[in-house]
């Protein structure tokens, strides 16, 4: 849940509830720690962090002063819980938790920001939902000039090899 200031576009995370399922839980404290850290990184992607290059290829977000990594003060307290559905695929019945909260948190927060503005007609905002982007969307919505979130994809897709026609790169099976 977020609060959006319609005058400034500033987004404040108010509550964050994560219910993850990593199968059987070995140590709840360590699971909770992974959920907290993952949520912090995922929320950061939703609202703040962004690597930015200029047209010449100079990195503009080259320091931690420019790259808006949050601190605990920027975040709300996290409410984390677990359901336990053991996997039949290993004897302990455990599943991974290291990345889970990162996966779930970014879209939840992005969706919350769009949801906050849905009554104005806003249907999409790109990541990260910075004050500038949010403020522009509010202004465009209030002046009836919201952009269509769709445009046709680049022509490259039509000319790609059909899957299976060429050897797949190793990255298709990357596990990290």
């Amino acid at each position: 849940m977020v609060e959006v200031d319609l005058d400034t576009g500033h987004v404040t995370p108010l509550r964050h509830i994560a219910v993850d399922d990593c199968g059987r839980v070995l140590n709840p404290m360590i699971v909770e720690g992974q959920q907290h850290g993952g949520a912090a990184q995922g929320i950061a992607q939703a609202l703040w962090e962004q690597v930015v290059y200029d047209a010449e290829g100079t990195l503009l977000s080259a320091t931690l002063a420019d790259y808006a990594m949050p601190s605990a003060a920027d975040l709300c307290s996290f409410e984390v819980a677990n359901t336990e559905t053991p996997t039949p695929l290993n004897p302990l019945g455990v599943k991974g938790i290291g990345e889970s909260a990162t996966v779930g948190s970014t879209p939840a927060v992005q969706n919350a920001v769009v949801d906050a503005l849905s009554h104005l007609g806003v249907r999409h905002l790109d990541l990260p939902c910075t004050p500038q982007r949010v403020w522009r969307a509010i202004r465009d919505a209030e002046s009836g000039t919201l952009a269509d979130p769709w445009r046709e994809p680049p022509p490259v897709f039509a000319t790609l090899p059909v899957r299976g026609a060429a050897p797949a790169p190793e990255a298709e099976g990357a596990d990290i």
Binding site: V2, L6, D7, C22, L117
Partner: peptide, 15 residues
Amino acid sequence: RRVLGIGLCSYVEIT
């Protein structure tokens, strides 16, 4: 002028 947004995400992942 301070509005609320509620966002959901349901996901599954490979671990």
